[in-house]
């Protein structure tokens, strides 16, 4: 374990992360650290590797190289018989994942369970929280995200905004140290984006540590403490959100912020970077 020079261990630290899908290099050496209460916005064009970065942090995609530390604990990697890099200990990965809440672009609620069941499932089955306590906590979270009256509904009967709020409650129920949000509003109708951003804003105000992949520039400016701009799998620019969003240094980031990015075909095939990149 690497000794930490700072006053306290970073909640999350990734070092020199690389990931390729076939011949497509999606991540080309990304390092970043999130300290407690940090809210980091990750921006970038389609195919820049934003979603893959999040997915490599909780090992949904296995990085080809690089290290992930969660509060100082390194996720150990090894190689399988075919030379593929793979987690050395699946149990460690499962345990670490319980400490990293994940919110997906397409919600990914379990469709055969009600909202309440979705929220209590992992706390009960994975963390071993007693059912009664899990339900109490779920009800508390449901009130917080404004979905208490929908607790017994199935996901299919909710709007996208409600589904995403339920998914956020599901992630919070694990009491994660870091929340990873992968384009939480990109799959929503425009009029539903606000209600989800409001919930995330509240979480930031509570001091939650979060990594948010987002296209919402205004939201990033208002909510995140730092912004990281990815371009072609590398950190092109990073710094305090207000500063770099208002005065981007690189031409590429300036173009991205001014909307030159929109409506243009992606530079790389988005299908290869996972479903969360598809528009």
């Amino acid at each position: 374990m690497t000794p930490d020079v700072g006053p306290r261990e970073a909640a999350l630290r990734v070092t020199n992360l690389h990931k390729a899908f076939g011949s497509l290099d999606v991540l080309r050496g990304i390092s970043l650290a999130a300290h407690e209460h940090d809210v980091i916005a990750i921006m970038g064009a389609s195919g820049s590797g934003k979603s893959t970065l999040l997915r490599c942090i909780n090992l949904l995609d296995v990085p080809d190289a690089g290290e992930v530390h969660v509060r100082g604990e390194l996720i150990h990697m090894s190689f399988d018989r075919r030379g593929q890099r793979t987690p050395a200990n699946p149990h460690q990965v499962d345990r670490i994942r319980t400490r990293l809440g994940m919110v997906f672009q397409r919600f990914n609620l379990w469709s055969h369970m009600t909202v309440l069941q979705n929220i209590v499932e992992a706390p009960i089955r994975v963390l071993g929280v007693p059912r009664r306590r899990a339900i109490e906590q779920a009800d508390h979270l449901l009130r917080k995200v404004g979905l208490y009256d929908k607790r017994d509904d199935f996901p299919a009967h909710l709007s996208g905004g409600q589904e995403q709020r339920a998914a956020i409650a599901r992630a919070l129920a694990m009491e994660p140290e870091v929340l990873l949000l992968d384009e939480p509003t990109s799959a929503l109708d425009p009029e539903l984006v606000g209600e989800v951003l409001k919930v995330i804003d509240d979480l930031a105000a509570e001091g939650r540590t979060m990594l948010i992949v987002t296209h919402e520039i205004g939201f990033a400016r208002a909510v995140s403490s730092r912004t990281v701009f990815l371009h072609q799998g590398m950190v092109k620019e990073h710094g305090p959100s207000r500063q770099i969003l208002d005065e981007p240094r690189s031409e590429r980031f300036r173009r991205f912020l001014s909307g030159g990015n929109w409506g243009r075909p992606a530079l790389t095939t988005p299908s290869q970077t996972g479903e969360s990149e598809t528009p």
Binding site: D94, R97, N108, W110, R170
Partner: peptide
């Protein structure tokens, strides 16, 4: 749906669970 399987993995569920 693949996404629901990924969600299960992301919440620390093992293969059997």
């Amino acid at each position: 749906p693949r996404g629901q399987i990924e969600a299960a993995r992301a919440f620390g569920m093992g293969r059997v669970l």
